[in-house]
């Protein structure tokens, strides 16, 4: 192979690679379809729920405190239609972790007639590297191609293994396309 041909081949490969990286899931402006904080919970009942805390919060005064005894933290469900029929969503939350020895994840599943058709989770240990401060975590999901309006998208925080106290605030879902 001549030098110029080799150079052209290298340039083509480089362009192809960069193109692939930049276009993997090219998207338009994100549209926020769910945002849940915990500031409106306080005062609704005679007693606040045990998980509600005002020791620290990402926004406002109140946040969700996942206790050592809990396997599951805050969760919400929306039908696909309520999320504005997205193909790709970004699910995220602000979390406050005491240290890096936690086994907790932000998980999402999609249910159709009680049957799970999609599941994915993101361990906080993989993405949070600063502790005792509020950190943003988020993950992008390609939903199944055959989603139906009644399919339920469930988002929740799950703790397994060794349990530790952590806090969570401002969970959100964004429609990317």
């Amino acid at each position: 192979m001549s030098n110029s041909a080799a150079r052209q081949l290298r340039t083509a490969l480089l362009k192809l690679g960069l193109g692939a990286i930049l276009t993997t899931g090219c998207q338009s402006q994100a549209e926020e379809v769910v945002r849940i904080g915990f500031d409106d919970i306080h005062g609704w009942g005679p007693q606040d729920p045990p998980w509600l805390t005002d020791s620290t919060a990402h926004s406002g005064r109140w946040s969700y405190s996942l206790s050592i005894a809990d396997d599951y933290g805050p969760n919400f469900s929306r039908s696909w239609a309520e999320l504005n029929n997205p193909k790709t969503i970004r699910v995220g939350a602000w979390v406050w972790l005491p240290h890096g020895r936690i086994t907790t994840a932000l998980a999402i599943n999609v249910e159709r007639d009680g049957e799970k058709i999609y599941y994915k989770s993101m361990g906080f240990r993989e993405v949070v590297k600063r502790y005792r401060s509020w950190e943003l975590v988020h993950q992008t999901h390609e939903l199944p191609a055959d989603m139906r309006p009644t399919d339920m998208v469930n988002v929740y925080i799950w703790q397994w293994g060794e349990h530790h106290r952590m806090k969570c605030d401002d969970m959100f879902v964004e429609k990317l396309r």
Partner: peptide, 26 residues
Amino acid sequence: RKLLGIVVGTGLAVIVCMGGVWRFTS
């Protein structure tokens, strides 16, 4: 020089396998 091209090309392929720029978690 050839190896450099192969390394960069393989590196870009690995980046795509990790989700690329748009799908890289968090």
